[in-house]
């Protein structure tokens, strides 16, 4: 497993990069998801794989049954997965919103004519009534 996992992680990473370079926004998001998973896999395999007891302390004893597995990489991955989950939920919502507002998921079309920047903020014309601040 020690050699297979890094190879799988690398293959998934490469696939992710390929998808990242595609023009469709949805494929880009899938690419990010794949890369995120491959990095988690790399983190897992860099934490060394071993077949040992789970690192749980049985009732009545003070330490886990040796030899026990290293729980740290799993804690790290769990954190990374949760963070990734939140970020991807946001990315999906953003992509959906962009599709609704801009009518396309093709990045070439999505990102063109970004010049008109002054329209981004509607100037507040509430000076006369003294502002609402």
């Amino acid at each position: 497993m020690d050699t297979i996992l890094p190879i799988i992680a690398g293959a998934i990473f490469a696939t992710g990069i390929y998808l990242l370079l595609r023009r469709s926004l949805i494929l880009t998001i899938i690419g990010i998801i794949l890369i995120s998973n491959s990095v988690n896999l790399a983190l897992f395999s860099l934490g060394r794989l071993s077949t040992e007891n789970p690192p749980l302390i049985k009732a009545g004893s003070l330490e886990p049954l040796a030899p026990f597995a290293n729980p740290l990489p799993q804690a790290l991955i769990l954190t990374a997965i949760v963070i990734g989950f939140g970020l991807l939920a946001f990315a999906l919502a953003l992509a959906y919103r962009s599709y609704r507002e801009l009518g396309t998921v093709d990045q070439d079309e999505l990102l063109e004519d970004a010049e008109d920047t002054s329209a981004a903020i509607v100037p507040r014309n509430d000076f006369k009534k003294g502002g609402d601040a």
Binding site: G86, A89, L92, A93, Y96, R100
Partner: peptide
């Protein structure tokens, strides 16, 4: 709270 917020707002879109 977080998951329900995400699901509800995506569902209501």
């Amino acid at each position: 709270g977080f998951i329900v917020t995400v699901i509800f707002s995506l569902e209501e879109e």
